[in-house]
């Protein structure tokens, strides 16, 4: 009996699928329909226009990134060495951790692989780096609610729009860039590109684009702190995600 009902359910589902596809095919086969035209070619890779581009007056990728992020109510430091980058990062974190809240930051794993020595620097300043293994129970999440600062790296960053692309992996939580009120993103120079189209073209050329998009459960493009203009078109910040986003740009090692 249960099996029969289940079978009926599956049959009904596949019926919907078949009926929808049949109706579409039937409609498209009718030469009298005014739209879509029969012979519209796809946009081929490389044909897509670059929507946001660098300008002649842009001094460099770092400067353009910083200028764009500032327009989006974010902030940044451009460091000329990893030592300087570490200093900027620690400084910003200490500024955000006031005396009332816990001295803890929610981070991606292996911060030192992004900026060597950062974990030690934070330890020295009495800041605990929290890297959760799982955030799937309410208990662990509730515990993290008090944490006010999140630290992440980036998959890649785009100068023309002041954007960072974040990828979820076992060491890289989505929560670190989402739950805390402040987010700091570490951007080594090798990961800074002119715009998203450049990144797409690079992956297209070496055949890895599909993999780059779908090999993690989630990719998020972040451009500035969380905001809304729902109330009388007036800007409000930190609606659900971070209220402040700070980027630290620095030359990669070597």
């Amino acid at each position: 009996m249960g099996q029969a009902i289940r079978d009926a359910g599956i049959r009904k589902v596949s019926q919907a699928r078949q009926r929808i596809l049949d109706r579409l095919r039937q409609g498209l086969a009718d030469p009298k329909i005014p739209w879509p035209p029969a012979d519209t070619p796809p946009l081929t890779p490389g044909e897509h226009m670059h929507v946001a581009t660098l300008r002649a007056e842009d001094a460099g990728l770092e400067q353009r990134f910083a200028a764009e992020l500032e327009k989006l109510h974010g902030s940044s430091d451009i460091a000329d060495s990893m030592v300087a980058a570490r200093m900027f990062t620690v400084q910003k974190i200490l500024e955000w951790l006031d005396d009332t809240g816990p001295r803890r930051v929610l981070a991606w794993s292996e911060l030192n692989s992004w900026l060597p020595g950062l974990e030690e620097n934070l330890f020295d300043r009495d800041v605990e780096v929290v890297v959760p293994e799982s955030l799937n129970s309410l208990d662990t999440r509730g515990d993290l609610q008090e944490i006010r600062v999140g630290i992440t790296g980036v998959e890649v960053a785009f100068a023309a729009t002041g954007s960072v692309l974040l990828k979820s992996t076992p060491g890289q939580s989505r929560s670190a860039s989402l739950l805390p009120l402040n987010h700091i993103a570490l951007i080594p120079g090798t990961r800074l590109l002119p715009n998203v189209e450049t990144w797409l073209e690079q992956h297209q050329q070496d055949g890895s684009l599909g993999h780059a998009i779908r090999n993690s459960a989630n990719l998020t493009l972040v451009s500035g702190p969380s905001k809304s203009a729902d109330i009388e078109s007036k800007l409000t910040l930190g609606v659900h995600g971070p209220k402040e986003l700070h980027a630290v740009l620095y030359p990669a090692a070597g």
Binding site: V51, E68, E133, T161, S168, R174, A217, L221, S226
Partner: peptide, 28 residues
């Protein structure tokens, strides 16, 4: 650009399936 005149919105979330084994967070 057409909706609000923004070059980009703050977030573009791209989901390809449930959280992978060992992922820290994400839906089952």
């Amino acid at each position: 650009r057409s909706a609000t005149g923004q070059r980009v919105t703050v977030y573009l979330s791209m989901t390809s399936g449930p959280r992978r084994p060992e992922d820290v967070d994400g839906p089952e």
